[in-house]
Design a binder for these strands. Structure first.
Lengths: 145, 145
DNA sequence: CTCAATAAAATTGTATACAATTAAATTGTG
DNA sequence: CACAATTTAATTGTATACAATTTTATTGAG
């Protein structure tokens, strides 16, 4: 029928999600500028701050991204001297990414970022937890396919 | 301090948002493939199905995107014959985007998409409304800056 | 009326995303 | 052991995002 409300722009559930994700990356930008990192680069380093080396496949699993995104991303981090990209000696297919001293050092400069962003984001703790859980539920549903 | 939990990957609130938005766009892709549209192109047309002409600035306000994203997007829609890009006769700075008959016709092919996606998305109506509202709240907070 | 200020798009350059394909190494099976 | 199947990354090509700059047109102050 012509009065199909499911095709009205303002009734879309997913667009606010899409738009909020863009806005969130935008909000991080000025904070990350001082570290000369993008949001994705920041998340990637965060993983390496907890676990000093990881394969491309492991990054793919944690970040939910494929090698088409990860390979150039990791090359850029390498170019900045924040990681190395070696091959696994036992299995040459595998690329092992290791954080460098410089990459580790960047963690100190990042310590203020979560608090700074929390101020901008304007959600209280309960709301933050809720939105996180909801997104994780959505991710799980979509991952089934 | 070194045990700063706010820098732990799994404690990030925003990453699930980022990842869910990517997953959502991925989920739309196979459905939109039959219309030969991307998610953003679909949203753009959805606006034009409700209001047959709009300026770049108006698109910017509704989609929260700038001309750097919109100009190439609208050129692609023009290349597909779905919109025209005229200049406003009274103010030559303004680009007026109008939907074509072909663009209008595409709406019929899109009618099944919301229902199909709702099946995949695995959230009930209440959850969908919640996540939508939460993202909108987040957007409002971030828009203040 | 005249420009400086402003406004609207377009352009430039960088960094994601991701489908599809390719390349190279390893595994598994007969 | 030979070699097809599989695994892991890299590559290719297209489409966002967006900061920064440029272009063109309009407005507005004097």
């Amino acid at each position: 029928m012509d009065s199909d409300k499911t095709l009205l722009f303002d009734n879309q559930v997913c667009f606010p999600l899409y738009s909020a994700a863009n806005a969130m990356v935008r909000a991080y930008r000025p904070l990350l500028r001082e570290l000369d990192l993008t949001y994705l680069q920041y998340m990637t380093l965060m993983l390496l701050w907890e676990q000093p080396q990881m394969t491309v496949k492991e990054f793919g699993a944690r970040l939910d991204l494929d090698s088409g995104t990860l390979t150039p991303l990791l090359k850029r981090l390498e170019a900045k001297g924040l990681v190395t990209r070696e091959r696994d000696k036992l299995d040459e297919r595998i690329r092992v990414i290791k954080i460098t001293a410089q990459g580790k050092a960047l963690r100190r400069k990042a310590e203020g970022i979560p608090a700074q962003l929390a101020c901008n984001i304007g959600l209280d703790k309960k709301e933050a937890v809720q939105i996180k859980q909801m997104c994780q539920r959505l991710l799980q549903s979509l991952a089934k396919d």
